[in-house]
Each structure stands twice: as C-alpha cells, then as structure tokens.
C-alpha cells in the first residue's frame, strides 16, 4: 500500500493563466502542472516523479470550452475528451477528432482527462514509467532496445537511443487537421503547428513536446481548411478500453470527381511523434480514390522502418491501416 501513496506536495489552484504562469515560473523544475491529472497521478503514485509542488490548472475558466471563430474552431486546453467526443461542431466538421476522442482510454478517463493533457502526456514505455533511470529519465541505457527488452509496443521509426512512441490518440487527428497549438509563457504567446509541437529524442530525449518548464498550452486552434473533408480514424489496441494504440491512423482527404485533391495521413504508436505518411500522401494525391491507389500508397507506409525484436507485426498493421484510411474514408 505504501507504494500507492504519493509523496507529499504542495497544491496550488490558480484562478487565471497569469497566476499559473507565475507559479510555474517560480517553481521551475520542482513544479508540475495537472489538468485532469489522469496521466500525472500514476507517475506520483509510482513515485517515479516526485514534484514538490503541483499546479492544478482546472480552475482557469478561460482555458475551458470549445468556440467557433472566423478561421475555424478554438478548443480550450481544458476541454475534456468527452466534450470533444460529443461536441456537435466537431462531430459535423472534424469527425476525425471526435472519433479519435471516442477511442481514448475509458469513459471515466475521458470525462476528466483534457485535450491539453492528452497531447502533453508522457510516453508509456513501462521501463521508464516504472521509474528506471533509462535514457529518457536522464540515465545512459535504453532497457527496451536490448535483445531481451520487451519492445512489442515500441517504435519502427526515428529511434535515437530511446525507442518509445507517441501514446496519444488525439495527436494524429490534430496533425491531419493542421491544428495549431497556442502556448503561453511570461513573455507572451506563440503558436506552433501540431506537426512541430511533438518532438523526438533526436531533438530532446527528455521531452515529448516543445513545451518548456514555465510554459502552458492554453488552446488548440483548428483551421477551416479540412472542415467537412472525408475522414478516417482507426485504432488497434489489445483491448478496446484502456489500452493504448499499438498503431492508430488518422486521415483527412479532399475528393473531387473521385480524384484525391489533397490528403493528410498521420499515425501514432510507430514513432516518438505522430508520423506523417508523406510518401503515401504524395502517391495518393491526384489519383483516383480507389483500392488500387490505396494499395500503392500503403505500400510505402513502412518504408524505412527499423523493427525491434518484438514489433515486426507493426509493419503490416501500419500498411493495412493506411490502406483502409485511403480506401474506406
């Protein structure tokens, strides 16, 4: 039972972004932000992370809600995954995001977990999550990338000492919708495209996103560009509830007279970041939307993959998901 007890921390509940930024700045690396806490509390209970102070963002009203804007939609970082799943605007214009939301975790976690927490969550590599001092935790070994390492869930692409993957189901959907992430720090606001928001171990092995200590993701903006396009989302996991994606795929396709005018496809679970299927997109663009195009494009999906001992199955899984995304959207 002692192992389930979180170590002591101070808890702050600022009422606005300015208050949260000030706290985050003051606390530095000793502070930890929580929104819904669904990812964070596990870290604390396993005592793999032991922050001295926790800043609860959930009282910041301005970070809630889903609003229509001239250029599209603005989703507050505190919008829950259930709110995303049930929102009528998202369902009618950006169904790929609502579909992805419906496949996250379990109903209870979706009711509490936020979109901000979902895209900022840390990787699920269990060596790392159980508190081992691997590369990502500041050590000098990867325990997953060894001959005996249990790496069935790990990456096919982009390994650089660490072979962990992007765990989020919402991230690939946001990448294909070309969302931009609104980040605030004490100096002001900056926006980063969803594609550039996620970073791999080659950029920084200890972070999954560009967010730095002292910064807060306040909102996510979805442009009109892909509103009402044809969409596809599919997640393959061991169980339909709770389990993270072995591989997931999100796609947005604009079709005119049966010809694919434009297309974006991104997959989770295969790299540390949601992986754009750029070659498959290039092959499909300008071609008829049919089985033949889908097969041709999907054949490129796993090009360059470097499988680990136990994850070769992800290659055909990835190819098949890309095929279905193009054919069945």
């Amino acid at each position: 039972m002692a192992k389930d007890m979180m170590t002591r921390f101070e808890l702050y509940q600022p009422a606005d972004i300015a208050g949260a930024l000030e706290l985050a700045g003051k606390l530095g690396p000793d502070g930890w932000l929580i929104a819904g806490g669904q990812d964070s509390l596990d870290w604390f209970k396993d005592r793999a992370k032991r922050p001295g102070a926790v800043v609860d963002l959930s009282r910041i009203e301005s970070m809630r809600g889903i609003r229509e804007t001239d250029s599209g939609l603005e989703i507050g970082a505190l919008a829950t995954v259930t709110e995303i799943e049930e929102n009528t605007l998202i369902k009618s214009r950006y169904a790929v995001l609502a579909d992805a939301a419906s496949r996250v975790a379990s109903p209870q976690i979706r009711n509490v977990g936020t979109i901000g927490g979902n895209v900022c969550q840390d990787t699920r590599c269990w060596y790392y999550r159980s508190g081992i001092d691997c590369y990502r935790a500041g050590g000098s070994t990867c325990y997953a990338d060894t001959p005996e390492g249990m790496n069935r869930e790990h990456c096919l692409f982009g390994a650089d000492r660490c072979v962990a993957v992007s765990p989020s189901d919402l991230a690939p959907a946001l990448v294909v919708l070309d969302a931009s992430m609104v980040i605030q720090n004490k100096a002001g606001e900056r926006t980063v495209s969803a594609q550039d928001f996620f970073i791999g171990p080659d950029t920084d092995i200890e972070r999954m996103t560009v967010i730095e200590a002292g910064e807060i993701l306040t909102a996510i903006r979805i442009p009109n560009t892909w509103a009402g396009a044809r969409f596809y989302f599919e997640k393959v996991a061991d169980r339909n509830t709770w389990d993270f994606a072995l591989v997931n795929v999100a796609a947005a396709i604009q079709v005119e007279n049966d010809i694919i005018q434009d297309i974006r496809i991104a997959c989770g679970g295969v790299e540390c970041v949601p992986r754009r299927m750029s070659v498959a997109e290039d092959i499909a663009r300008g071609s008829a939307k049919n089985e033949e195009t889908a097969r041709l494009a999907a054949g490129s999906a796993a090009r360059g993959a470097v499988p680990l001992n136990y994850n070769h199955f992800k290659i055909s899984l990835l190819e098949n998901l890309v095929l279905r995304a193009i054919r069945d959207s």
Partner: peptide, 25 residues
C-alpha cells in the same frame, strides 16, 4: 491506477475514477 472502475463515483453528473481524482480538485 484508473484501470478498473471499482472506485467509480459521480461528480456533477459524470462518472469519475475517485482513485484518480485529487480531492482538492
């Protein structure tokens, strides 16, 4: 750990895992 549902309670009309909710929130 938010993985079973035995601790499910209702907060303002929505189900929550009470094991994964800080009381102060």
């Amino acid at each position: 750990r938010g993985e079973c549902g035995a601790c499910t309670v209702v907060i303002d009309g929505m189900t929550n895992y009470s094991c994964s909710t800080l009381t102060h929130t």
